[in-house]
Design a protein around this nucleic acid. Structure first.
Lengths: 212, 212
DNA sequence: TCCCTTATCAGCATAATTTCCTAATTGTGC
DNA sequence: GCACAATTAGGAAATTATGCTGATAAGGGA
């Protein structure tokens, strides 16, 4: 039996969810709460499996409640159920380690399936959320603008990001330290920075070189 | 009609996939290829919608083929279909902007559903892949080990990561440059690095300080 | 109280970095 | 051929950074 708790400040929506879930085999809604504090309280006092959590609630909001509950009751699978599709909150919530993120326009069947899957240990994301995650990955490696750095300059910049000194870079590339310095001066000018530290950080920030 | 191309070096698996898909309404396998180059060639010569791509293929591998096809034919939705669940490749592939990543143990129904969803613009990930993505998010904010750095040292390290010089740090914190240097020496020793660049990079790498 | 850490400042010596200058060679494109 | 960029190298000088030692003061804990 999967024990479910619903946390949402809209009584109508709670009622709707409860009615959807109460006819499902093996699923039982054991409680409903109307705010984040209520969710925290029940998580502390009662064992259950799945928490359907709205983010926008009065008082202690869903985000804070998630943070507390994730810390205190790691065994509870939290499924965020929200209308909020905006970028800022999504990543904040996902970083907390929630097990699912669904939008409120899901069809009942998807919701029920998701509850079962989360109970089985599978993470669940709404397609648009998956898209945002992937989008972040792909957009993050679009240097595009490599500031007109030549191949050699990129190579040297990579060594700077590895923490090499000018001398070491020269030895590694079989060129004189003087040449390294010249390249670096050009790199600094092109990246619009003053020293190797700023260059290294900017290179990492702009993904010109991989930090690893 | 969703036009599908299968790229896999195992004839048996290709045949199996084709038989699964050929009875589906609205889906037609228009071609099969056995290596990455073949996938690239057909993508260049023939319009189609979905490419089921194995990663481990002889010659031009799936990863390279994905890269080329993604660049030349953005309208083709690539679904990576592989046994490879290892961490390194997953992120490389996802960064290319593939539309789906499934493991070869999927049931036929899931595969068909996934093709339809990708065709409709939805991204598709195997649960374990979603888990890895989420795991990366949550694990990324665990500094924990601050290497015994004191508050003041952390503060100074933050300035280093901003690209400040010793003089600038001194001015900002209303202390002498000498003091800054002393703190830095201690920081270098504790972080086990030789200079400010390595310290800044290590701080970023270990999330001791936020880069931005 | 004594010891340790932290934070502050300083001097000295050395090393590393950075800038500015010139200049040769090579390859690419017009 | 000519112009231009990339790569290479060197000289000279200024600036910055680093290591080491020493010193003072405040605060916490055994």
């Amino acid at each position: 039996m999967i024990k479910v708790v619903i946390a949402d400040d809209h009584p109508l929506l709670r009622e709707g969810l409860r009615r959807i879930l109460e006819f499902e085999e093996g699923i039982r809604v054991i409680s409903e709460v109307g705010d984040g504090q209520g969710a925290i309280n029940i998580a502390r006092s009662t064992p259950f499996d799945i928490l359907l959590m709205d983010l926008n609630m009065p008082g202690v909001n869903g985000l804070e409640a998630c943070r507390v509950i994730r810390r205190e009751r790691t065994e509870i699978g939290i499924i965020v159920l929200t209308v909020d599709d905006s970028d800022e909150k999504i990543f904040q919530v996902l970083q907390l380690g929630v097990a699912g993120y669904l939008l409120k326009d899901v069809i009942p069947k998807t919701l029920v399936d998701s509850i079962r899957k989360v109970y089985a240990g599978e993470p669940i994301l709404a397609p648009s959320v998956t898209g945002k995650l992937l989008g972040q990955l792909t957009s993050s490696n679009t240097p595009k603008n490599n500031f007109g750095l030549s191949n050699r300059e990129m190579e040297i910049l990579a060594y700077v990001v590895k923490g090499s000194s000018n001398r070491d870079i020269g030895i590694s590339l079989f060129i004189s330290e003087k040449t390294v310095k010249n390249h670096l001066s050009n790199i600094f000018r092109k990246l619009e920075v003053e020293d190797r530290t700023q260059a290294a950080l900017k290179a990492v920030k702009l993904k010109l070189v991989q930090l690893d």
